[in-house]
Simulated scan of single mutants.
Amino acid sequence: MQKLVLFTLVAITCQQTHAEFTAADCRELGFIKAQLMCSSCDKLDDFGLETLKTPCKQCCTLDQQPAAQRTYAKAILEVCTCKFRAYPQIQAFIQSGRPAKFPNLQIKYVRGLDPVVKLLDDAGKVQETLSITKWNTDTVEEFFETHLAKDGKGKSSYSVVEEAVDDDDDDDYLLTNKV
Rank of each mutant, 00 (worst) to 15 (best):
residue 69 Q to Y: 09
residue 53 K to H: 05
residue 99 P to D: 08
residue 79 V to W: 01
residue 146 T to L: 13
residue 124 G to D: 03
residue 172 D to W: 01
residue 88 P to W: 01
residue 33 K to W: 04
residue 118 K to C: 01
residue 13 T to Q: 01
residue 168 D to K: 06
residue 109 Y to P: 02
residue 118 K to H: 14
residue 167 D to V: 03
residue 94 I to Q: 06
residue 26 C to A: 09
residue 150 K to S: 12
residue 148 L to P: 04
residue 89 Q to I: 01
residue 46 D to T: 04
residue 179 V to M: 07
residue 77 L to D: 06
residue 176 T to M: 01
residue 24 A to R: 10
residue 42 D to N: 13
residue 70 R to F: 07
residue 128 E to Y: 11
residue 65 Q to N: 06
residue 24 A to Q: 15
residue 9 L to A: 14
residue 133 T to I: 13
residue 38 C to H: 03
residue 14 C to Y: 04
residue 17 T to R: 12
residue 127 Q to F: 04
residue 77 L to G: 08
residue 115 P to Q: 08
residue 57 K to Q: 14
residue 15 Q to F: 14
residue 161 V to N: 05
residue 120 L to A: 08
residue 96 S to D: 07
residue 17 T to L: 15
residue 89 Q to S: 11
residue 66 P to I: 01
residue 146 T to Y: 04
residue 79 V to K: 02
residue 104 N to K: 07
residue 124 G to K: 10
residue 100 A to W: 01
residue 93 F to G: 05
residue 57 K to G: 02
residue 103 P to I: 00
residue 162 E to S: 11
residue 19 A to H: 09
residue 96 S to N: 11
residue 40 S to C: 01
residue 120 L to V: 10
residue 13 T to H: 05
residue 83 K to S: 12
residue 149 A to L: 11
residue 137 T to S: 07
residue 140 V to E: 05
residue 109 Y to M: 07
residue 122 D to P: 04
residue 72 Y to T: 07
residue 151 D to P: 00
residue 7 F to M: 13
residue 82 C to I: 09
residue 63 D to I: 06
residue 155 K to G: 00
residue 130 L to Y: 08
residue 119 L to S: 10
residue 151 D to M: 06
residue 148 L to N: 09
residue 143 F to N: 03
residue 178 K to E: 08
residue 87 Y to Q: 07
residue 150 K to H: 13
residue 141 E to N: 10
residue 129 T to P: 00
residue 51 T to M: 03
residue 100 A to Y: 10
residue 84 F to Y: 15
residue 26 C to V: 05
residue 98 R to S: 13
residue 101 K to M: 12
residue 58 Q to N: 02
residue 56 C to H: 00
residue 149 A to G: 02
residue 145 E to Y: 06
residue 61 T to A: 03
residue 116 V to M: 12
residue 7 F to W: 10
residue 18 H to C: 13
residue 2 Q to F: 10
residue 138 D to R: 03
residue 85 R to S: 13
